[in-house]
């Protein structure tokens, strides 16, 4: 359950990025993650809701984007999104794959409530 630690770090990142708008409530947060981060959506939502209680993020919607990991088969040159749970070429079944760089865990966007 590293999602709990990620959620705490996320909350700190949101607070740090929102200092100029600290009087506003946050309604939506967008994060993205790579494949190696192994973020489970359900666990992440649960952890974020828990740490967000009594903060400017309470009740905010969390949107989680999973960024595919680009890879290429060294044998048949097919380019495809790498799946760690099925680490072979979907076309020729070769296990000789050039795996690209994985995306980091990123806080992308914060949406605040609109003024009345």
């Amino acid at each position: 359950m590293h999602e709990a630690a990620v959620a705490e770090n996320l909350l700190q990142s949101i607070i740090a990025a929102s200092t100029e708008h600290s009087d506003k409530k946050i309604v939506r947060v967008v994060i993205s993650c790579g494949q190696i981060n192994a973020i489970n959506d359900e666990a992440m939502q649960f952890a974020f809701a828990a740490v967000a209680e009594d903060t400017i993020c309470e009740g905010a919607i969390l949107e989680i984007k999973h960024i595919p990991l680009k890879s290429q088969c060294r044998k048949c040159k097919l380019e495809f999104d790498f799946d760690f749970y099925s680490p072979t070429c979907p076309d020729c079944d070769s296990g000789d794959i050039a795996i690209g760089a994985d995306a980091p865990l990123l806080l992308e966007e914060i949406e605040f409530e609109e003024d009345d």
Partner: peptide, 14 residues
């Protein structure tokens, strides 16, 4: 209102 942040969440650990 939306703001773009694009900062690493685990930046403190990094």
């Amino acid at each position: 209102m939306k703001i773009k942040v694009n900062k690493k969440i685990l930046a403190k650990n990094e």
